[in-house]
C-alpha cells in the first residue's frame, strides 16, 4: 500500500492505495467520484478523461500513485455555482444522448480550448480523436465545442 495526497475537485484526500490501482478506480471507488465512467480497458475511449494539474489525462492510463501531489478536476468539479460554458453548450447543442461519453468529452474539450481557444471544426474533430461517442455521430459535439469557444470558455 502506498500513501498518496491528491486534491480532487478542490478537496484534499489522503489515502492508502494498492500500487497497481488505476486513478479512475481510485476516483470512483475510494473518493466516490462516480461521475467519471469507464468505457474500455485499452485507453481508447476517453470516457474517463479528467484534468490533472490542468491537462487532460485518461484516468485509466494513470496509476493512482502517479497522481500523488496533483490537482485533479473531474466533471463533478466543472460547474462552479453555474454550469461551465462547455456543460451549457453540450446541453444547448444536444451534444449528448446516453451521456456516457459526455464527462470525458467535456473534460477533453476543455483542455482542447485551453490550448486552442478558437479551433476550426477540423481542429475540434482532431482534438477529440481520443474520445469515442457511439450515440451522437459527433456533429453536435463539434457544434457544442464551437459554441463554447465562441462564448470564450478559455477566458
Amino acid at each position: 500500500m502506498a500513501e498518496i495526497t491528491v486534491t480532487v475537485d478542490g478537496v484534499n484526500y489522503e489515502d492508502h492505495v494498492e500500487p497497481r490501482m488505476l486513478l479512475v478506480h481510485y476516483l470512483r471507488e475510494i473518493v466516490g467520484k462516480t461521475g467519471t465512467p469507464i468505457g474500455c480497458d485499452t485507453s481508447n475511449c476517453g470516457a474517463c478523461t479528467v484534468l490533472m494539474d490542468g491537462q487532460s489525462v485518461k484516468s485509466c492510463a494513470v496509476l493512482a500513485v502517479q497522481a500523488d501531489g496533483t490537482q485533479i478536476t473531474t466533471i463533478e468539479g466543472m460547474a462552479n455555482g453555474a454550469l461551465h460554458p462547455l456543460q451549457r453548450a453540450f446541453h444547448e447543442e444536444h451534444a449528448l444522448q446516453c451521456g456516457y461519453c459526455t464527462p470525458g468529452m467535456i473534460m477533453a474539450a476543455s483542455d482542447l480550448l485551453r490550448e486552442n481557444p478558437h479551433p476550426t471544426d477540423t481542429e475540434i474533430r482532431e482534438g477529440l480523436e481520443g474520445n469515442l461517442c457511439r450515440c451522437t455521430g459527433y456533429e453536435n459535439i463539434v457544434r457544442a465545442v464551437r459554441r463554447a469557444a465562441q462564448a470564450g470558455v478559455s477566458e
Partner: peptide, 9 residues
C-alpha cells in the same frame, strides 16, 4: 441532460 452533464448520472 441536467444529471448527464454534471456527472450525477
Amino acid at each position: 441532460d441536467a444529471r448527464l452533464i454534471t456527472g450525477q448520472t
